[in-house]
């Protein structure tokens, strides 16, 4: 029982430390700088801004 208690408290502490570390790391790494560029990071020359990438399948003869 004591061991399980310790494991849970240690996990909670580890989680808290990891969260603070992740936030600090992200700030230092510049993840929160130039956010406009970040928003565009999922686009590229192949699937650029302004292009729709999903449509209903076409209606074909004999297919409902």
């Amino acid at each position: 029982m004591f061991l399980i208690s310790m494991i849970i408290w240690a996990t909670a502490l580890l989680g808290a430390v990891m969260t603070v570390w992740a936030l600090t790391w992200a700030i230092k790494r510049g993840e929160f700088r130039n956010l406009r560029k970040g928003a565009s990071s999922i686009f590229d020359a192949g699937e650029p801004i302004g292009r729709q990438t999903d449509f209903f399948p076409p209606v074909r003869k004999g297919v409902r």
Binding site: L35, A39, I42, F43, Q52, T53
Partner: peptide, 19 residues
């Protein structure tokens, strides 16, 4: 957050707010 911008071809309205 991935599909809406990707399908419409428009970046997220406010990236600050998303974070």
């Amino acid at each position: 957050y991935y599909l809406i911008p990707k399908v419409t071809g428009r970046p997220v309205h406010s990236y600050h707010l998303s974070l």
